[in-house]
């Protein structure tokens, strides 16, 4: 429910008259921390685990890959383990594991004598019914076109969803997560509000609907809480809640994938 948004728009009204400027802030540098991003899906492999390190705020957005890691993924349900191969700097891929719903996967990453572990269970797939479009006036007071996802949430509580949009093959920076905590068993018609107008009539939209587990939902929910325009009303910033042990940043997610291509109307 977009209650924060409700309130955020009011601030936006006030901030319409506000001035903004880029300022210099003197941020301390931090010891580079390991960042792991691992995904297993129900689409065919190979599946990728990307390992990088953080850089200082003032640095360029170039993140050093970690090339000396040993990465294994275990299908705990099938009791099958595989060591991943590095195909590009910091990019490790599987070759045999096949992602299946309701299987639990474990990831172990060994780097420089440190071990990072995580596990994730791929939820049951919920079918996306359709994508429709709606016009809304956004908080910057522009009319924008938003995709609306339509699907039936299952009767049992505990379903988590993530939506990613690609317009004309480019990923839109907004990520959407949705939980059925307040919507269990409902037919969901959820507009995906963008921070800017990205969708134009005639564009090709590829929308990915992923059924994610609770940890992945928590990760992206807490990540979204501290990024972008949410900062006006945000919680005290902190690193997202991760399912990876030992202080690593990032997440490990086993999830289903449904990609749908549609022309924006």
């Amino acid at each position: 429910m977009r209650k924060t948004a409700t309130y955020g728009f009011l601030l936006t009204l006030l901030l319409a008259s506000a001035c903004k400027k880029v300022i210099d802030v003197d941020l301390k540098s931090a010891t580079p921390q390991i960042v792991i991003e691992g995904n297993i899906t129900d689409a065919g492999g190979p599946y990728i685990v990307k390992i990088t390190k953080t850089v200082d705020f003032s640095a360029e957005n170039v993140y050093p890959p970690v090339t000396n890691a040993v990465v294994t993924i275990t299908d705990s349900t099938m009791k099958r383990t595989e060591q991943l191969q590095q195909i590009d700097s910091g990019v490790y891929v599987t070759s045999t594991i096949i992602g299946q719903t309701r299987h639990t996967y474990g990831m172990v990453v060994d780097v420089d004598g440190q071990r990072y572990t995580a596990s994730s269970t791929m939820p049951r797939r919920v079918q996306l019914d359709s994508i429709t479009f709606a016009e809304n006036v956004n908080f910057n007071n522009q009319t924008e076109i938003n995709a609306v996802v339509n699907f039936q949430d299952p009767v049992a509580i505990g379903n988590y969803y993530m939506f990613t949009e690609y317009v004309n093959s480019r990923q839109i920076p907004d990520i959407f997560v949705f939980e059925d905590r307040l919507s269990t068993g409902r037919y969901i018609e959820e507009p995906l509000f963008n921070d800017s107008s990205y969708l134009q009539k005639g564009d090709t939209l590829v929308l990915s609907m992923d059924c994610i587990d609770r940890n992945t939902y928590d990760y992206f929910f807490t990540l979204l809480n501290v990024t972008g325009n949410n900062n006006f009303q945000s919680v005290t910033p902190s690193n997202p809640v991760t399912n990876i042990s030992n202080g690593a940043l990032g997440y490990f997610s086993a999830h289903t994938v449904q990609r749908t291509a549609i022309t924006v109307y």
């Binding site: 802030v25 941020l27 301390k28 540098s29 931090a30 580079p32 921390q33 960042v35 991003e37 990088t52 390190k53 953080t54 850089v55 200082d56 705020f57 640095a59 957005n61 993140y63 990613t164 990923q171 920076p173 990520i175 990540l223 501290v226 990024t227 005290t236 910033p237 902190s238 690193n239 997202p240 940043l249 990032g250 997440y251």
Partner: peptide, 21 residues
Amino acid sequence: TWPNGKYNINGQTAFYYTERN
């Protein structure tokens, strides 16, 4: 609380926080 670093996740820049306030 301000970030002391940054990283990339899911194709986007995310910020790395080490200390509260």
